[in-house]
Amino acid sequence: MSKLFREGKVQIVEPGGQVQEAYRKKSESYLISAKILLENGRLESTRSSPV
């Protein structure tokens, strides 16, 4: 990734309004789902256990 950045093939840009809104909606959806799962005793950790 560093090489691509140095070559100018990858750059940091400010997110557009549509991207911000999409992430906000997705985040809100995940939060609602988590609350439903928690209320029904079905919420599980997203961390994987070492094998």
Rank of each mutant, 00 (worst) to 15 (best):
Arg24Ile: 11
Gly41Glu: 11
Gly41Tyr: 06
Glu21Gln: 07
Glu28Tyr: 00
Glu21Gly: 03
Ile36Met: 04
Leu43Val: 04
Gln11Asn: 14
Ser27Val: 02
Asn40Phe: 00
Val19Ile: 10
Gly17Gln: 15
Gln11Asp: 15
Arg24Thr: 12
Ser29His: 09
Glu28Ser: 09
Leu37Ser: 03
Glu7Gln: 08
Ile32Met: 01
Met1Ser: 11
Lys35Tyr: 01
Leu4Phe: 03
Glu7Cys: 00
Ile32Gly: 06
Glu39Met: 12
Gln11Phe: 13
Glu7Thr: 01
Leu38Lys: 14
Tyr30Thr: 06
Gln11Glu: 10
Leu43Pro: 00
Ile12Ser: 12
Ser27Phe: 04
Pro15Trp: 06
Lys9Glu: 06
Ser33Val: 05
Gln18Thr: 10
Leu37Val: 01
Lys9Thr: 02
Tyr23Met: 10
Lys3Tyr: 12
Ser29Tyr: 02
Lys9Phe: 02
Ser33Ile: 09
Pro50Thr: 05
Pro15Thr: 02
Val13Asn: 09
Gly16Trp: 00
Leu43Ala: 00
Arg47Tyr: 14
Gly16His: 05
Val13Leu: 15
Gln18Trp: 05
Ala22Ser: 11
Arg42Ile: 01
Val10Gln: 03
Val51Cys: 13
Ser49Ala: 09
Ile32Val: 09
Val13Tyr: 08
Phe5Asn: 01
Ser33Arg: 05
Gln20Ala: 09
Arg42Cys: 05
Leu4Lys: 07
Ile12Trp: 15
Glu7Asn: 02
Arg24Leu: 15
Ser48Tyr: 12
Ser48Ala: 12
Ser49Thr: 07
Gly8Met: 06
Tyr23Thr: 04
Arg24Met: 12
Glu39Arg: 15
Pro15Ala: 07
Leu4Trp: 06
Lys25Pro: 05
Gly16Met: 00
Lys3Gln: 13
Ser27Gly: 13
Tyr30Lys: 09
Val19Ala: 10
Glu21Arg: 03
Ser2Trp: 08
Val13Met: 14
Ile36Arg: 05
Ile36Trp: 00
Leu38Glu: 14
Leu38Gly: 10
Ser48His: 10
Ser33Pro: 07
Lys35Ile: 08
Ile32Lys: 12
Leu37Pro: 02
Lys9Met: 03
Ser2Phe: 11
Met1Val: 15
Ser49Tyr: 06
Glu39Lys: 14
Arg6Tyr: 08
Ser27Leu: 04
Leu38Pro: 09
Glu7Pro: 00
Leu37Arg: 08
Glu28Asn: 04
Leu37Ile: 00
Lys26Pro: 06
Ile12Gly: 09
Arg6Met: 03
Lys35Ser: 06
Val13Arg: 14
Val10Tyr: 07
Gln11Thr: 15
Glu14Phe: 03
Ala22Val: 08
Glu39Asn: 12
Tyr23Leu: 10
Ser49Pro: 07
Gly8Tyr: 00
